[in-house]
Design a binder for these strands. Structure first.
Length: 640
RNA sequence: GGGGCCGUAGUCUAGCAUGGAUAAGGCGCCAGCCUGCGGAGUUGGAUAUCCCCGGUUCGAAUCCGGGCGGUCCCGCCA
């Protein structure tokens, strides 16, 4: 009894069926199961079966027969094996293709019981259990509001985190705060020079527009430039007035930026500030470790005399660099970006012991504190991660590769292998790219996009819920808007550029976030209106209609889909691709199958035993869809 | 000079890792479906030299070679 229960309570129902099929084919064709796996596919149309094999093509070389003959032979043996296998209904052969059909009742039963028993755990598996992962995202300069391109980074990072957690990783979500850059110096200089010209704008927006002005002066007025360069030097000294002014400015800016982040449902565990990297002693430790490696040294002469450089031209990827000596520390001893990044990456893996101190930055709307590094505060022991994912624009493929390569040169081969650059392309406009410097982001800030999305959603919510209060309408509209934006950013493959067009972004019909939320809201209405019946012995084998079956198959695949995306995070020469779009496609498809089912097959008007079975299906859809939306970070709405 | 990514109907995209049956979907266009569990829905239709040229293969949108177009990168910069 217990055994039977645990057998049907299956974390990955689809995989169970697939494995069974592969086992049978392997036996029937006398081949290794792995080989069968290589020649297994999902047929283009369900009428051709649930799983098909093209093993007959493969076998033509060994057996000197044509594929169709081979397939026919295998079918005879498969028929015999399938007779004793409850999961398989039948086998058909179409030319060289061998098509297998699952037992619909078994699939329905196993899938629905698994989903019911697992509830919000459905979709969680343990393939990567025990691994600790760090994600860095989105690392926006604290000098401007997020524009829609920054949101792409943040949303990719957040969804990546959700997926890693679903497959068993322990995840730390970090953000990198560059509080010592030139942009910060420009703003700190400007604020002190001109005093407060603050408007009632959100603070990050205020800084963003201020920055466009100061940048113009910086480029055209040498006196201004000189002043800002001096401020930049002063920022390196934490005791200086400039540093204190900038600290306050950055804190306010980050809090404003975080409001945007929270609107998208994105929360962090920890912020690492550049000042902590600069002043914690991390750099000195890292520098010594780097110099102990053969490829890192200080040239005595040449144009890089006195610098700490890494020699890279022995490596295939870098043999064509303009200059193979990459500077890590300048001749005056200061760090370059690459030098700091290598040291930081060493911290992430715990190659150096954690020199940072920590304090709470703020409490987030999800109830969790986000920590920040400080110069005075509590010691902890972060670092020591198994895998590191840096979500950074694809234009940085080369610098990222450099960092990981230097790690390898230092002798940390494993850590280098486990360093992942999750690359994504920019969101741009038809005419131009977003630039903080030129201010082309104005009109495309993430806040503005979210505002407009919520506004459009609100019109529709008004129409549909005339009796509801303002608070309800605003809240629902915000959730629909946020979900629409997240979906838009996730549905494009990260390595494809997105051209932002208001018409597309605000079109909520078809393949868009609201469609998913809507399908769930409709499902919930059915359950809400259901009368009470004895559901203790549902007969799920009644769910035999094609529309029901397609929905069931999609439901059974959910855990496998998540795993496929996680397994797909394989490191390649120039980056690690993350198919966020695979999950949006799955989710859209699931919603679409439910909508077709909803449209064609009544639940509440079906006769009792069928009604109970269909309600089971609807409930399972609600669970799986909810879990999938959470994975994508799209808010669940009960009514819309 | 070298390298990354992208090129698929009017348009936006999926499929490419691991080659397989009729190249899938959204928007837009045309024609249906509300006395029906919520029409942000659903049914049907028209629209494709899968950038080009070769090669491998029984079979190529997918793999390999060479091009073309777009874009990004190859600083003691930031």
């Amino acid at each position: 009894m217990n055994q039977a229960m645990s057998k049907s309570d299956d974390a990955n129902p689809w995989q169970t069926f697939e494995k069974t099929v592969i086992r049978l084919i392997a036996k029937a064709a006398s081949v290794e199961p792995e080989t069968v796996g290589d020649f297994t596919e999902i047929p283009p149309d369900s009428s051709l079966g649930d799983i098909a094999t093209t093993i007959s093509f493969h076998l033509t070389k060994e057996v000197k027969k044509n594929p169709a003959e081979i397939a026919a032979g295998i079918k005879t043996r498969l028929d015999e094996l399938a007779r004793d296998e409850p999961l398989i209904d039948r086998v058909e052969v179409k030319g060289p293709y061998i098509n297998l059909f699952f037992d619909r009742g078994e699939l329905a039963k196993r899938t629905l019981i698994a989903i019911k028993n697992r509830g919000e755990e459905f979709g969680r598996t343990e393939e990567f259990k025990g691994l600790r992962a760090l994600i860095e995202s989105p690392a926006v300069n604290p000098s401007k509001p997020w524009h829609i391109g920054h949101a792409r980074n943040a949303v990719i990072g957040d969804t990546l985190g959700n997926i890693l957690e679903a497959v068993g990783y322990d995840v730390l979500r970090t953000d990198y705060i560059n509080n010592l850059g030139l942009q910060i110096a420009q703003l700190a200089w400007k604020l002190q020079k001109e005093g407060s010209t603050e408007t009632d704008q959100k603070y990050d927006h205020f800084l963003g527009t201020l920055y466009v002005d100061v940048q113009k002066d910086f480029e055209t007025n040498p006196v201004v430039e000189q002043g800002i360069r001096e401020t930049s030097r002063q920022l390196e000294d934490p005791e200086s007035t400039d540093a204190q002014v900038s600290e306050e400015m950055i804190t306010r800016c980050l809090k404003a930026q975080n409001e945007t982040s929270y609107r998208l449902g994105i929360y962090h565990d920890l912020q690492i500030w550049e000042s902590a990297i600069a002043h914690s002693g991390l750099l000195d430790t890292a520098r010594e470790m780097m110099l102990s490696c053969e490829s890192v040294f200080i040239p005595n002469d040449g144009d890089k005399a006195g610098c700490v450089v890494a020699k890279l031209d022995d490596l295939e990827e870098f043999k064509d660099m303009k200059d193979p000596y990459k500077v890590l520390f300048r001749s005056d001893g200061t760090r370059t970006y690459t030098g700091a990044d290598v040291a930081f990456q060493m911290w992430k893996f715990g190659i150096v012991s954690d020199p940072f101190k920590y304090a709470v930055f703020e409490n987030q709307p999800n109830g969790e504190d986000v920590l920040r590094t400080t110069l005075v505060g509590d010691q902890k022991n972060f670092g020591r991660f198994d895998v590191v994912f840096n979500v950074i624009g694809s234009e940085q493929a080369h610098p990222q590769k450099l960092i990981y390569t230097i790690l390898d040169l230092l002798g940390y081969e494993e850590q280098s292998k486990n360093s992942h650059h999750i690359a994504y392309e920019w969101v741009g406009l038809e005419e131009t790219d977003f630039s903080g410097r030129k201010g082309t982001w104005i009109g495309y800030s993430c806040d503005l996009v979210l505002d407009k999305a919520a506004e459009i959603a609100r019109e529709e919510v008004d129409k549909r819920n005339p009796k509801e209060g303002e608070e309800f309408k605003d809240e629902v509209a915000a959730k629909i808007g946020s979900g629409a934006v997240r979906y838009l950013l996730l549905k494009a493959s990260p390595d494809r550029k997105i051209t932002f067009r208001w018409m597309d972004a605000l079109d909520f019909n078809g393949d868009a976030g609201p469609y998913l939320q809507y399908s769930l809201a409709r499902a919930k209405r059915i359950i809400e209106k259901a009368d009470s019946l004895d559901e203790s012995t549902p007969d799920y084998s009644l769910l035999k209609d094609n529309l029901e079956y397609e929905l069931l198959k999609a439901l059974s695949r959910y855990p496998e889909e998540v795993l496929v995306v996680a397994r797909g995070l394989k490191k390649e020469a120039w980056g690690t691709s993350f198919s966020s779009n695979r999950i949006t496609t799955y989710c859209y498809n699931l919603a679409s199958l439910f909508s077709k089912f909803y449209d064609a097959l009544p639940v509440l008007k079906a006769e009792d035993s069928l009604k109970i079975a269909r309600r089971g299906l609807v409930n399972a859809f609600i669970i799986a869809m909810t879990n999938c939306l959470k994975l994508l970070g799209i808010p669940v709405v009960d009514r819309m």
